[in-house]
Simulated scan of single mutants.
Amino acid sequence: MSDRFVAVLAGGLTHERDVSLRSGRRLSAALRTAGITVEEWDADSSLMSRLHERRPDAVVIALHGDQGEGGSIQTVLELVGVPFVGADSHACRRAWDKPTAKAELARAGLATPDWVVLPQSTFRELGAQAVLAAMVDRLGLPMMLKPDQSGSALGAQLVRHATELPAAMVDCLAYGNTVLAERFVAGAEVAVAVIEDEDGPVALPAVEIVPESGVYDYTARYTAGLTDFHTPARLTSAAATAVAELAVAAHRLLGLRDVSRTDAIVAEDGTVYFLEANSSPGLTETSLLPMAIEAAGKSLGDIYAALVERAIARARSSAPSP
């Protein structure tokens, strides 16, 4: 039995609260099998007093949405000096903002579908019909719409016909004030997890995602039986290498740490397109990171126990000398 005490943060006040609680429960159970003492804490008004009164050796963040992926909870943990698994607050913000992440990878020469970003006010002030028509001229159809900052595909809409665009835009903007419109790329959708060890970031086997509806939206992600998964993904050896290299490159370019997941499309011509990066991957029974860990012949508890030790060692090495 380890003498480590770890707090798993889950819940929070976002649209993804239920998913977060499920991730937290599974992670906590996995850490306990690795011999670690674990408590599950909600990210609420009691958190600050808990961090001071029962200071954990480390925190593992199982929060989703802006609170867990946008850098805010990481900033709080940095302020109080509690070690935590995962990227620091600045890297979380880069990855959480999808246009920023896409631009970062595009500058590095990596492929990502063409995109435009517009706030809700633009459609209101300049006329929605004209702006939507210009988007279609630029990106073509089908087109993907996403909030610029969101998780679990909340608000994501696949638009096949121009007549669907106004309603899809309304649905998308229900989850944020700014929309990311992206050229749709047909191909195999994959997710590639990256775990850091003493040798640096390593890509796990890619998970191929085949949703029954054709769109990997919130329902398809978290309802058992609505999506088929193939791990490892059914890719050529060249494509499997390319998606692994993309995931490691995204992890490094965005400054991520410990664990991340990159979502990508392998187009019919073999080109690999970056879609987005996740600094706090889900850990539910239908989530992709646990599938990749299992395919790699590893256990969730052992992986996260090792990441806890990395976080503690990192904090010690950065502490000022007495």
Rank of each mutant, 00 (worst) to 15 (best):
S89G: 02
A111P: 00
Y304F: 15
N177A: 14
V170N: 11
I195K: 09
L173H: 07
T219Q: 11
I73Q: 03
L289S: 09
A128H: 09
D42F: 12
R183E: 01
Q74M: 05
D97T: 08
G35S: 03
A134C: 06
F123C: 06
E196A: 13
A277G: 03
V266M: 11
T223F: 10
I293V: 15
W96L: 15
A244C: 10
P142F: 00
V194P: 02
I36K: 05
F5Q: 11
D269G: 09
E196G: 07
L110C: 11
A111T: 06
G65Q: 02
R252K: 14
L154D: 02
V117N: 07
E198Q: 13
A162R: 15
L126Y: 12
E212H: 10
T178C: 13
V38S: 03
A233D: 01
V210W: 00
R316H: 13
I312G: 07
I209N: 04
T163S: 10
S279W: 01
G68Q: 01
E104S: 14
A267Y: 06
R310N: 05
G11P: 07
Y222I: 00
V194E: 01
R183V: 03
V8K: 03
T227K: 12
G86D: 01
R22D: 04
S321K: 11
T100Y: 11
L21Y: 14
L256Y: 04
D302F: 08
